[in-house]
């Protein structure tokens, strides 16, 4: 397996997924790197899709282990400071940061299972793969996903009203 190609293909999506999952960019990068390290260290081989599924599954388990006792979501928001990008106009940058925070807050209100399910689905995973990671039957993913989507939509609306 080619180190550079695999890294280029998987790392950005993995970081974004973990960032959405944890709310902490540093933790997201750490977990994504650890997942890729294990992939290469253990010589995991497979199709691009198979490797991607393995990486996301590993990252999900690493995040769960890391925050197994109790996640302090408020602290996660505090350690994820909003840093304006130098290449963006201040107004645009501020708007984007507000959007990010609203998405972050809405995701934080979801149960871990709903959050993982939602983020995996919108990272392009099949129902079977989601079921494998979440630990439910593939036939119940549709129902659970539908509820998670509605909860997220409601939470985003509430976050928007509160802003």
């Amino acid at each position: 397996m080619d180190f550079d190609n695999t890294f280029d293909q998987q790392y950005p999506d993995l970081v974004r997924y973990c960032h959405r999952l944890t709310g902490d960019r540093d933790v997201a990068e750490d977990v994504a790197q650890e997942s890729l390290l294990r992939l290469f260290d253990r010589g995991i081989e497979g199709s691009e899709h198979g490797v991607r599924a393995w990486l996301f599954k590993t990252a999900t388990h690493l995040v769960r282990d890391r925050y197994r006792v109790r996640q302090n979501r408020k602290r996660l928001l505090e350690v994820n400071p909003v840093v304006p990008s130098a290449t963006e106009a201040p107004d645009t940058s501020l708007e984007r940061n507000e959007d990010r925070n609203r998405v972050r807050e809405a995701l934080d209100t979801l149960a871990p299972r709903d959050r993982e399910m939602l983020l995996m689905r919108y990272s392009g995973f099949s129902y079977r793969e989601i079921a494998d990671v979440i630990g439910v039957s593939a036939t119940s993913v549709g129902t659970l996903l539908s509820r998670a989507e509605k909860r997220f939509e409601r939470a985003m609306t509430e976050a928007g009203e509160a802003a």
Partner: peptide, 18 residues
């Protein structure tokens, strides 16, 4: 949801991580 989750995604420094 797809649009919402994609918006505001920050750039990722793949080279440094590599």
């Amino acid at each position: 949801i797809q649009r919402t989750l994609s918006e505001g995604a920050r750039a990722v420094d793949t080279d440094a991580a590599k």
